[in-house]
Amino acid sequence: MMTNLFSIFEPSSSIFNFPFNWMSTILGILFIPYLYWASPSRWSLFWSKIIQTLHKEFKALLTSSHMGVSTLFVSLFSLIVFNNFLGLLPYVFTSSSHMVMTLSLSLPLWLSLMFFGWVNHTQHMFAHLVPQGTPPALMPFMVLIETVSNIIRPGTLAVRLAANMIAGHLLLTLLGNTGPGLSLSILSILIFSQILLLILEAAVAIIQSYVFAVLSTLYTSEIN
């Protein structure tokens, strides 16, 4: 029976008609008690250093009117990077490779920013539609372009994260399915290439989490 190639990434197990694979989204919470209740370890100190570095960087991107918002984006980065790395483990469902997960992160954030900006800074939002120095003849086109680019922001955030995560997993799956029919010499090359791809996927997991959080921070900084 022919099935969709992407069906391997769909939730298959359920309890009381609830997709049990989506529970992997909160699987990272299981690591928190070790950080807070155990004695400080190298892992906890390393993670604290990452959080402090991200907090300083996000704080530099935001204006003085957004004090304390950097904590939100640090938490957003932590959630995404945990789910991306958990998806690299065998038999763990990668929720960040689905639009349901990524849109649920980007769309509410974008809607809240738009609502806050248009209610409290209406003139600034109108002025942002026309870049400074635009000729009068091009102003209607610039308003249209800026409006479209603003509307598609949550979609681009969601698609970028989901597409990058599912592309690497799909490549690993396709290469892994060819292993049983290969000779021993070619199989060793395949295993070595799989290890390299796994390292690349680990880097992509960090980069895409950082890109998602930084772009969200930049979108927030535009609303003064």
Rank of each mutant, 00 (worst) to 15 (best):
residue 65 S to R: 06
residue 151 I to E: 00
residue 128 H to R: 14
residue 33 P to A: 01
residue 155 G to V: 09
residue 110 W to D: 02
residue 189 I to N: 02
residue 170 L to Y: 13
residue 127 A to F: 07
residue 27 L to A: 13
residue 56 K to P: 01
residue 148 V to M: 10
residue 189 I to S: 07
residue 214 V to W: 10
residue 128 H to D: 12
residue 222 E to G: 15
residue 68 G to S: 02
residue 206 I to Y: 07
residue 20 F to T: 15
residue 203 A to Q: 11
residue 156 T to V: 14
residue 86 L to I: 12
residue 40 P to N: 10
residue 3 T to G: 14
residue 191 I to Y: 08
residue 205 A to T: 12
residue 89 L to R: 04
residue 6 F to E: 07
residue 139 M to N: 07
residue 164 N to G: 11
residue 143 V to F: 08
residue 105 L to G: 11
residue 185 S to D: 04
residue 77 F to E: 03
residue 123 Q to S: 09
residue 108 P to Q: 06
residue 84 N to P: 11
residue 214 V to H: 11
residue 43 W to N: 07
residue 75 S to Q: 03
residue 65 S to Y: 01
residue 68 G to A: 00
residue 152 I to G: 03
residue 217 T to W: 04
residue 147 T to W: 05
residue 169 H to Y: 06
residue 63 T to K: 15
residue 208 Q to T: 14
residue 95 S to T: 13
residue 168 G to R: 05
residue 141 F to W: 13
residue 21 N to T: 09
residue 129 L to R: 07
residue 2 M to S: 15
residue 75 S to Y: 01
residue 129 L to Y: 06
residue 190 L to T: 02
residue 114 M to S: 04
residue 193 S to R: 01
residue 218 L to W: 09
residue 211 V to G: 00
residue 216 S to P: 00
residue 151 I to F: 10
residue 183 S to A: 08
residue 141 F to C: 15
residue 102 T to L: 13
residue 216 S to Y: 01
residue 11 P to A: 08
residue 63 T to W: 03
residue 83 N to L: 00
residue 31 F to W: 10
residue 144 L to F: 14
residue 220 T to C: 11
residue 14 S to M: 15
residue 198 L to E: 04
residue 17 N to Q: 12
residue 18 F to Y: 14
residue 97 S to H: 04
residue 113 L to A: 02
residue 100 V to S: 10
residue 9 F to R: 03
residue 184 L to F: 03
residue 199 I to Y: 05
residue 130 V to Y: 01
residue 69 V to P: 00
residue 166 I to F: 07
residue 214 V to Y: 12
residue 44 S to F: 00
residue 182 L to N: 01
residue 67 M to E: 12
residue 5 L to H: 11
residue 22 W to H: 13
residue 56 K to V: 06
residue 128 H to V: 04
residue 5 L to C: 00
residue 197 L to W: 07
residue 132 Q to V: 08
residue 198 L to A: 13
residue 106 S to F: 11
residue 84 N to C: 14
residue 30 L to I: 09
residue 154 P to I: 08
residue 52 Q to P: 01
residue 45 L to N: 15
residue 213 A to V: 12
residue 3 T to D: 10
residue 95 S to A: 15
residue 40 P to A: 13
residue 183 S to D: 15
residue 75 S to G: 12
residue 41 S to Q: 10
residue 37 W to R: 06
residue 110 W to V: 10
residue 29 I to P: 00
residue 64 S to V: 14
residue 154 P to Q: 05
residue 193 S to D: 00
residue 185 S to L: 03
residue 69 V to Q: 12
residue 202 A to N: 10
residue 204 V to H: 08
residue 201 E to G: 11
residue 77 F to S: 05
residue 140 P to W: 06
residue 207 I to S: 10
residue 70 S to T: 03
residue 86 L to C: 02
residue 212 F to E: 07
residue 164 N to M: 14
residue 197 L to D: 05
residue 193 S to K: 00
residue 69 V to M: 05
residue 13 S to W: 09
residue 62 L to T: 04
residue 181 G to M: 11
residue 223 I to E: 01
residue 75 S to A: 15
residue 62 L to G: 03
residue 21 N to R: 10
residue 53 T to M: 15
residue 116 F to G: 08
residue 87 G to T: 02
residue 210 Y to P: 08
residue 32 I to L: 13
residue 48 S to T: 12
residue 29 I to Y: 03
residue 46 F to R: 15
residue 223 I to Y: 05
residue 106 S to L: 08
residue 158 A to T: 04
residue 191 I to E: 05
residue 120 N to T: 07
residue 20 F to C: 11
